[in-house]
Structures are given as structure tokens and as C-alpha cells.
Amino acid sequence: MKTLQLEFYKIRRRNVWLSMFAMLGIQILWGQWSMRNPKDWELESGWMSLLYSLTVLDGLMMPTIMSLLASRLADIEHKGNTYKQLKTLRSAASLYHAKALCGTVILTVLLASQAAVFILYGYYLGYEGNPDPRYYLLAYGLKFASCLSLFLLQLLLSMYFANQMIPLVIGLGGSMVALFVMFVSNYSFLPWGGILSSSLVGMDWDQTSSIIIYFYRDYSKAETAAVICIFIWVFVFYAAGRRLFTRREA
């Protein structure tokens, strides 16, 4: 617990919260621009379309955001060359857990704030009815797991490489992969496709009327496997990060 507290102490004045909320601000700006002036048929299926839009936004931006978060948490140790010293004061595993937990707390708050802001925006736009709490909670949980897998992957890379350019470029590449996976499929077994796989809403575009029809997805076997894969990635990246970090010399 003390190690976790110290992690939060370390990121004081490092603008980690500010940079995360700035990213949320960009998402809000994008959402505001893409969802403004909804038509009647858009208001009818507004809550479903919101879940879909958030998947696209997050799928594209979260790999990069998670790489920024992990880099900010890890690079302080590289800069101060403090790994060896810290390991003499507590176990390596507890230090790794503290960093992972610190990022998880930030991620939880970030996603909860995002959900709250966009739900309020949905009410402001006048979406019909209320958001279905079952779907919204499930969507939150699945997105959290997908983002956590990305965060743990990035934390592993950021702690391994002293040169933070490498993990950040991998994060950017992940965003690019996620974007193009969206073009070709609605699920993926790659860690960067987790947000897409876990989307609860699908979309059909009617060419004749130019109306978009949203629907709750029925997962096929392959899609279910892709969702399960998210949790496997979480475990793999956690175990790999812990092992790598505890065995690291300096």
C-alpha cells in the first residue's frame, strides 16, 4: 500500500492526470463534432450509436493513450536510474504491482469520466429513453479489460526500454493496426483489436436510405474467442511484465 502511495507521490506535478484528461478532452471534441445535430432516426437509436462511436474512438486512441500513460509512470525510474536502489528497499514484485495498480486506478477514473461525460452529452442531445445499464456496465468492463491489456503491454515495454521512443512508437503503431482492423473485420485476436472485439454494438448501413442501423451483436464462436483472448492478453502481459521486472538487474 505504501509503495502504491509512493507511486502517486512520484507522479505529482508530472501532469499525468492532466495529460490523460487532455486526451479525454480531445475525445469529447471529436465526439461533439461527429455526433452533433442528430437526425430523428439517430435520436431513436442514440444510446446504441453512442456505444458504437465510443468503440471507434477508443479503438483508435487508446493504444496511444495507454503508451503515454505507461511511459509517464516508467520513465521516472529510467531518468533517475533508480531501479536498483528501489529494489534494495522493497521487493521488485511490489514495485511492479504498485506501478501496474497506479495505472489501473488512473485508467478506471479515465474510463468512468469518459462514460459519464458522454452519457450526459447523450441526454443533452435528446437521445430517446435511457442507456441500458446492463449493456453500458458490460461495455465498461470489457473496455476496461482491453485497455488494461494494452496498458500492461506498454508498461512492460516502457520499463524494459530506457529509450521511451520505442514503446511510444509501438503504441502509435498499435493505433494504426487497430484502425485498419476496423476496416476489415469486427473482431481481432491482436491486443490492439480488443476494444473492437469487445464492442457490444454492430452497425449496418442501408445504401438506399443512407440510414445506419445499430444492433446488439450476437457473438459468433470466433468473436467470443476474441473476447476471451482479451483476458488472456491481460494475464500474459501481467505475467511477462512481472517476470521481466523482477529478474531485471538495473
Binding site: G25, I26, L29, M61, I65, L68, R72, D75, M165, L168
Partner: peptide, 17 residues
């Protein structure tokens, strides 16, 4: 910081759209 200017670039690019 190494990461924050990159975050600004990402935000700037999306803001550009």
C-alpha cells in the same frame, strides 16, 4: 518530458481534422 509532446502531437493532429 518525452511523452507529453507526443501526446500534444496526437491531440494536435486529431484537432487538425
Amino acid at each position: 518530458s518525452f511523452a507529453i509532446p507526443i501526446g500534444i502531437a496526437v491531440a494536435g493532429g486529431i484537432g487538425g481534422m
